[in-house]
Nucleic acid binder design. Sequence first.
DNA 1: TCAACCGTATTACTTGACTAATACGGTTCA
DNA 2: TGAACCGTATTAGTCAAGTAATACGGTTGA
Lengths: 135, 135
Amino acid sequence: MVSFVGFPLEGEGPIYLRIVRFIRAGVAAGTIVDGDEMPSRRVVSATLGVNPNTVQKAYRMLEEEGLMVSRSGAKSFAAVTPESMEAARARLQAEEIGRVVSALRRSGMEKEDAMALLSSLWDEDEQAEERGESE
Amino acid sequence: MVSFVGFPLEGEGPIYLRIVRFIRAGVAAGTIVDGDEMPSRRVVSATLGVNPNTVQKAYRMLEEEGLMVSRSGAKSFAAVTPESMEAARARLQAEEIGRVVSALRRSGMEKEDAMALLSSLWDEDEQAEERGESE
DNA sequence: TCAACCGTATTACTTGACTAATACGGTTCA
DNA sequence: TGAACCGTATTAGTCAAGTAATACGGTTGA
Protein backbone atom coordinates (compact mmCIF):
# COMPACT_ATOMS: atom_id res chain seq x y z
CA MET A 1 0.00 0.00 0.00
CA VAL A 2 1.37 3.40 -1.00
CA SER A 3 1.92 5.55 2.07
CA PHE A 4 1.46 9.29 2.46
CA VAL A 5 3.88 9.50 5.34
CA GLY A 6 6.18 12.40 4.69
CA PHE A 7 3.65 14.34 2.68
CA PRO A 8 4.34 18.11 2.91
CA LEU A 9 1.23 19.29 4.76
CA GLU A 10 2.54 22.85 4.82
CA GLY A 11 3.91 22.89 1.32
CA GLU A 12 3.52 25.49 -1.40
CA GLY A 13 0.99 25.53 -4.18
CA PRO A 14 -2.38 23.82 -4.54
CA ILE A 15 -2.93 20.66 -2.50
CA TYR A 16 -3.87 18.51 -5.46
CA LEU A 17 -0.62 19.41 -7.21
CA ARG A 18 1.36 18.56 -4.09
CA ILE A 19 -0.30 15.15 -4.10
CA VAL A 20 0.58 14.64 -7.77
CA ARG A 21 4.15 15.69 -7.09
CA PHE A 22 4.41 13.41 -4.08
CA ILE A 23 3.33 10.35 -6.05
CA ARG A 24 5.49 11.28 -9.00
CA ALA A 25 8.48 11.49 -6.69
CA GLY A 26 7.68 8.07 -5.26
CA VAL A 27 7.49 6.58 -8.73
CA ALA A 28 10.67 8.29 -9.88
CA ALA A 29 12.52 7.15 -6.75
CA GLY A 30 11.33 3.57 -7.08
CA THR A 31 9.51 3.69 -3.75
CA ILE A 32 6.25 3.07 -5.57
CA VAL A 33 6.31 0.06 -7.84
CA ASP A 34 3.89 -1.35 -10.38
CA GLY A 35 0.78 -2.85 -8.85
CA ASP A 36 1.09 -1.08 -5.52
CA GLU A 37 -2.32 -0.37 -4.03
CA MET A 38 -3.15 3.33 -3.75
CA PRO A 39 -5.07 4.48 -0.66
CA SER A 40 -8.65 5.41 -1.47
CA ARG A 41 -9.72 9.02 -2.06
CA ARG A 42 -11.56 9.04 1.24
CA VAL A 43 -8.64 7.67 3.21
CA VAL A 44 -6.21 10.19 1.76
CA SER A 45 -8.70 12.99 2.29
CA ALA A 46 -9.04 12.05 5.95
CA THR A 47 -5.28 11.74 6.34
CA LEU A 48 -4.55 15.13 4.81
CA GLY A 49 -7.65 16.87 6.10
CA VAL A 50 -8.97 17.86 2.69
CA ASN A 51 -12.01 17.05 0.59
CA PRO A 52 -12.11 13.73 -1.28
CA ASN A 53 -12.60 15.67 -4.50
CA THR A 54 -9.25 17.33 -4.06
CA VAL A 55 -7.65 13.88 -3.94
CA GLN A 56 -9.79 12.81 -6.88
CA LYS A 57 -8.45 15.71 -8.93
CA ALA A 58 -4.90 14.63 -8.19
CA TYR A 59 -5.60 10.96 -8.87
CA ARG A 60 -7.29 11.88 -12.15
CA MET A 61 -4.18 13.75 -13.24
CA LEU A 62 -1.95 10.85 -12.25
CA GLU A 63 -4.19 8.53 -14.22
CA GLU A 64 -3.89 10.73 -17.29
CA GLU A 65 -0.12 10.58 -16.89
CA GLY A 66 -0.33 6.80 -16.87
CA LEU A 67 0.93 6.51 -13.30
CA MET A 68 -2.12 4.77 -11.86
CA VAL A 69 -5.31 2.96 -12.82
CA SER A 70 -8.80 3.25 -11.34
CA ARG A 71 -11.95 1.21 -11.81
CA SER A 72 -15.26 2.61 -10.64
CA GLY A 73 -16.17 0.94 -7.37
CA ALA A 74 -12.89 -0.90 -6.97
CA LYS A 75 -9.50 -0.04 -5.55
CA SER A 76 -6.81 1.93 -7.37
CA PHE A 77 -3.33 0.75 -8.18
CA ALA A 78 -0.04 2.27 -9.27
CA ALA A 79 0.90 1.63 -12.89
CA VAL A 80 4.63 1.90 -13.23
CA THR A 81 6.36 1.12 -16.49
CA PRO A 82 9.83 2.20 -17.64
CA GLU A 83 8.08 4.85 -19.74
CA SER A 84 5.86 6.25 -17.00
CA MET A 85 8.82 6.25 -14.63
CA GLU A 86 10.86 8.25 -17.07
CA ALA A 87 7.94 10.61 -17.65
CA ALA A 88 7.55 11.16 -13.91
CA ARG A 89 11.22 11.97 -13.59
CA ALA A 90 11.04 14.38 -16.51
CA ARG A 91 8.04 16.17 -15.08
CA LEU A 92 9.73 16.62 -11.72
CA GLN A 93 12.78 18.02 -13.48
CA ALA A 94 10.64 20.37 -15.53
CA GLU A 95 8.94 21.64 -12.40
CA GLU A 96 12.29 22.24 -10.81
CA ILE A 97 13.58 24.39 -13.64
CA GLY A 98 10.25 26.13 -13.82
CA ARG A 99 10.65 27.18 -10.22
CA VAL A 100 14.15 28.44 -10.85
CA VAL A 101 13.08 30.57 -13.75
CA SER A 102 10.05 31.80 -11.86
CA ALA A 103 12.26 32.84 -8.98
CA LEU A 104 14.58 34.63 -11.39
CA ARG A 105 11.71 36.53 -12.87
CA ARG A 106 10.91 37.98 -9.47
CA SER A 107 14.32 38.41 -7.92
CA GLY A 108 15.27 41.44 -9.99
CA MET A 109 17.50 39.44 -12.32
CA GLU A 110 20.81 39.29 -10.52
CA LYS A 111 22.03 36.41 -12.69
CA GLU A 112 21.55 37.80 -16.17
CA ASP A 113 24.64 36.12 -17.54
CA ALA A 114 23.32 32.76 -16.44
CA MET A 115 20.09 33.57 -18.22
CA ALA A 116 21.90 34.62 -21.37
CA LEU A 117 23.94 31.45 -21.20
CA LEU A 118 20.79 29.38 -20.98
CA SER A 119 19.31 31.20 -23.93
CA SER A 120 22.34 30.80 -26.19
CA LEU A 121 22.80 27.18 -25.19
CA TRP A 122 19.24 26.54 -26.19
CA ASP A 123 19.76 28.16 -29.57
CA GLU A 124 22.90 26.13 -30.22
CA ASP A 125 21.03 22.98 -29.33
CA GLU A 126 18.31 23.76 -31.83
CA GLN A 127 20.69 24.73 -34.60
CA ALA A 128 22.77 21.61 -34.09
CA GLU A 129 19.60 19.57 -34.32
CA GLU A 130 18.62 21.23 -37.58
CA ARG A 131 22.03 20.47 -39.03
CA GLY A 132 21.72 16.87 -37.91
CA GLU A 133 24.85 17.03 -35.81
CA SER A 134 25.36 15.78 -32.32
CA GLU A 135 27.76 18.59 -31.33
CA MET B 1 5.63 61.78 -27.22
CA VAL B 2 5.72 58.01 -26.78
CA SER B 3 3.46 56.33 -29.31
CA PHE B 4 1.34 53.23 -28.91
CA VAL B 5 1.32 52.47 -32.60
CA GLY B 6 2.10 48.81 -33.05
CA PHE B 7 0.65 47.80 -29.73
CA PRO B 8 -0.57 44.17 -29.81
CA LEU B 9 -4.33 44.65 -29.36
CA GLU B 10 -4.93 40.92 -29.72
CA GLY B 11 -1.95 39.78 -27.71
CA GLU B 12 -1.75 37.20 -24.96
CA GLY B 13 -1.93 37.77 -21.25
CA PRO B 14 -3.41 40.62 -19.20
CA ILE B 15 -3.66 44.00 -20.93
CA TYR B 16 -1.72 45.86 -18.25
CA LEU B 17 1.20 43.46 -18.64
CA ARG B 18 1.16 43.90 -22.41
CA ILE B 19 1.41 47.65 -21.86
CA VAL B 20 4.34 47.18 -19.49
CA ARG B 21 6.04 44.86 -21.98
CA PHE B 22 5.44 47.28 -24.82
CA ILE B 23 7.08 50.18 -23.00
CA ARG B 24 9.94 47.99 -21.76
CA ALA B 25 10.63 46.94 -25.33
CA GLY B 26 10.65 50.57 -26.44
CA VAL B 27 13.13 51.44 -23.72
CA ALA B 28 15.33 48.43 -24.43
CA ALA B 29 15.33 49.18 -28.14
CA GLY B 30 16.15 52.85 -27.62
CA THR B 31 12.93 53.99 -29.25
CA ILE B 32 11.91 55.59 -25.97
CA VAL B 33 14.53 57.94 -24.56
CA ASP B 34 14.86 59.77 -21.27
CA GLY B 35 12.40 62.65 -20.87
CA ASP B 36 9.98 61.43 -23.53
CA GLU B 37 6.45 62.42 -22.66
CA MET B 38 4.14 59.50 -21.95
CA PRO B 39 0.55 59.74 -23.17
CA SER B 40 -1.91 60.25 -20.34
CA ARG B 41 -3.84 57.34 -18.80
CA ARG B 42 -7.02 58.60 -20.41
CA VAL B 43 -5.51 58.94 -23.85
CA VAL B 44 -4.03 55.46 -23.77
CA SER B 45 -7.26 54.03 -22.40
CA ALA B 46 -9.21 55.59 -25.28
CA THR B 47 -6.63 54.41 -27.81
CA LEU B 48 -6.66 50.80 -26.58
CA GLY B 49 -10.31 50.71 -25.59
CA VAL B 50 -9.70 49.82 -21.95
CA ASN B 51 -10.33 51.46 -18.62
CA PRO B 52 -7.93 54.21 -17.46
CA ASN B 53 -7.25 52.16 -14.35
CA THR B 54 -5.83 49.36 -16.43
CA VAL B 55 -3.34 51.83 -17.88
CA GLN B 56 -2.72 53.20 -14.42
CA LYS B 57 -1.80 49.73 -13.19
CA ALA B 58 0.73 49.37 -15.98
CA TYR B 59 2.15 52.85 -15.46
CA ARG B 60 2.45 52.19 -11.75
CA MET B 61 4.50 49.09 -12.42
CA LEU B 62 6.71 50.93 -14.87
CA GLU B 63 7.23 53.62 -12.29
CA GLU B 64 8.27 51.03 -9.71
CA GLU B 65 10.76 49.68 -12.23
CA GLY B 66 12.19 53.17 -12.60
CA LEU B 67 11.14 53.48 -16.23
CA MET B 68 8.89 56.52 -15.84
CA VAL B 69 7.96 59.31 -13.43
CA SER B 70 4.53 60.71 -12.58
CA ARG B 71 3.43 63.75 -10.63
CA SER B 72 -0.16 64.05 -9.48
CA GLY B 73 -1.96 66.43 -11.78
CA ALA B 74 0.90 66.79 -14.24
CA LYS B 75 2.11 64.85 -17.23
CA SER B 76 4.21 61.70 -17.07
CA PHE B 77 7.62 61.18 -18.61
CA ALA B 78 9.92 58.32 -19.44
CA ALA B 79 12.93 57.93 -17.13
CA VAL B 80 15.65 56.11 -19.00
CA THR B 81 19.06 55.60 -17.46
CA PRO B 82 21.70 53.04 -18.39
CA GLU B 83 20.57 51.04 -15.37
CA SER B 84 16.85 51.12 -16.13
CA MET B 85 17.58 50.28 -19.76
CA GLU B 86 19.57 47.26 -18.71
CA ALA B 87 16.85 46.24 -16.27
CA ALA B 88 14.22 46.48 -19.01
CA ARG B 89 16.31 44.31 -21.29
CA ALA B 90 16.84 41.76 -18.54
CA ARG B 91 13.16 41.58 -17.76
CA LEU B 92 12.27 40.99 -21.38
CA GLN B 93 14.87 38.24 -21.55
CA ALA B 94 13.54 36.64 -18.41
CA GLU B 95 10.02 36.65 -19.82
CA GLU B 96 11.28 35.03 -22.98
CA ILE B 97 12.94 32.14 -21.20
CA GLY B 98 9.96 31.83 -18.93
CA ARG B 99 7.80 31.23 -21.99
CA VAL B 100 10.19 28.63 -23.34
CA VAL B 101 10.20 26.67 -20.14
CA SER B 102 6.48 27.02 -19.77
CA ALA B 103 6.00 25.61 -23.23
CA LEU B 104 8.33 22.74 -22.38
CA ARG B 105 6.34 21.92 -19.31
CA ARG B 106 3.24 21.40 -21.43
CA SER B 107 4.68 19.80 -24.52
CA GLY B 108 5.19 16.38 -22.97
CA MET B 109 8.89 16.93 -22.45
CA GLU B 110 10.44 15.83 -25.70
CA LYS B 111 13.72 17.59 -24.92
CA GLU B 112 14.55 16.11 -21.54
CA ASP B 113 18.27 16.00 -22.18
CA ALA B 114 18.28 19.71 -22.89
CA MET B 115 16.43 20.27 -19.66
CA ALA B 116 18.84 18.05 -17.74
CA LEU B 117 21.74 19.93 -19.27
CA LEU B 118 20.26 23.25 -18.19
CA SER B 119 19.71 21.91 -14.71
CA SER B 120 23.22 20.60 -14.25
CA LEU B 121 24.73 23.75 -15.73
CA TRP B 122 22.83 25.77 -13.21
CA ASP B 123 24.06 23.62 -10.36
CA GLU B 124 27.66 23.96 -11.51
CA ASP B 125 27.23 27.71 -11.65
CA GLU B 126 25.99 27.83 -8.06
CA GLN B 127 28.65 25.50 -6.73
CA ALA B 128 31.39 27.45 -8.45
CA GLU B 129 30.03 30.61 -6.89
CA GLU B 130 30.05 29.06 -3.43
CA ARG B 131 33.66 28.03 -3.88
CA GLY B 132 34.54 31.55 -4.98
CA GLU B 133 35.82 30.33 -8.32
CA SER B 134 35.10 31.67 -11.76
CA GLU B 135 34.99 28.24 -13.41
C1' DT C 1 -27.96 -10.56 -0.60
C1' DC C 2 -26.46 -6.48 1.55
C1' DA C 3 -23.52 -3.70 4.19
C1' DA C 4 -19.30 -1.39 3.62
C1' DC C 5 -16.40 0.01 0.98
C1' DC C 6 -14.97 1.97 -3.68
C1' DG C 7 -14.66 5.69 -7.75
C1' DT C 8 -17.38 9.31 -9.89
C1' DA C 9 -20.32 13.38 -11.04
C1' DT C 10 -22.77 17.63 -9.98
C1' DT C 11 -23.09 21.70 -7.70
C1' DA C 12 -21.71 25.49 -4.82
C1' DC C 13 -18.57 28.28 -2.06
C1' DT C 14 -14.22 31.06 -1.60
C1' DT C 15 -10.53 33.59 -3.17
C1' DG C 16 -7.55 36.25 -6.03
C1' DA C 17 -6.50 38.40 -10.51
C1' DC C 18 -8.15 41.52 -13.86
C1' DT C 19 -10.92 45.14 -15.36
C1' DA C 20 -14.43 48.77 -15.04
C1' DA C 21 -17.24 52.71 -12.96
C1' DT C 22 -16.87 56.67 -10.61
C1' DA C 23 -15.23 60.39 -7.87
C1' DC C 24 -11.58 63.22 -5.88
C1' DG C 25 -7.86 66.54 -5.68
C1' DG C 26 -3.60 68.59 -8.09
C1' DT C 27 -1.52 71.14 -12.16
C1' DT C 28 -1.46 74.10 -16.06
C1' DC C 29 -2.39 77.98 -18.87
C1' DA C 30 -5.31 81.43 -21.27
C1' DT D 1 -9.57 82.43 -11.64
C1' DG D 2 -11.50 78.68 -13.86
C1' DA D 3 -11.90 75.38 -17.44
C1' DA D 4 -9.46 71.48 -19.10
C1' DC D 5 -6.51 68.64 -18.47
C1' DC D 6 -3.68 65.53 -15.29
C1' DG D 7 -2.69 61.47 -11.73
C1' DT D 8 -4.91 58.99 -7.97
C1' DA D 9 -8.02 56.32 -4.87
C1' DT D 10 -12.18 53.65 -3.82
C1' DT D 11 -15.43 50.50 -4.97
C1' DA D 12 -17.62 47.02 -7.67
C1' DG D 13 -18.18 43.54 -11.33
C1' DT D 14 -16.36 39.41 -13.80
C1' DC D 15 -14.09 35.25 -14.29
C1' DA D 16 -11.21 31.16 -13.42
C1' DA D 17 -8.88 28.18 -10.04
C1' DG D 18 -9.10 25.65 -5.95
C1' DT D 19 -11.75 23.39 -2.68
C1' DA D 20 -15.90 21.57 -0.39
C1' DA D 21 -20.71 19.45 0.15
C1' DT D 22 -23.42 16.04 -1.38
C1' DA D 23 -25.36 12.31 -3.90
C1' DC D 24 -25.04 8.56 -7.20
C1' DG D 25 -23.89 3.98 -8.94
C1' DG D 26 -20.28 0.09 -9.09
C1' DT D 27 -17.51 -3.59 -6.56
C1' DT D 28 -16.47 -6.72 -2.98
C1' DG D 29 -16.83 -10.20 0.52
C1' DA D 30 -19.06 -12.33 4.66
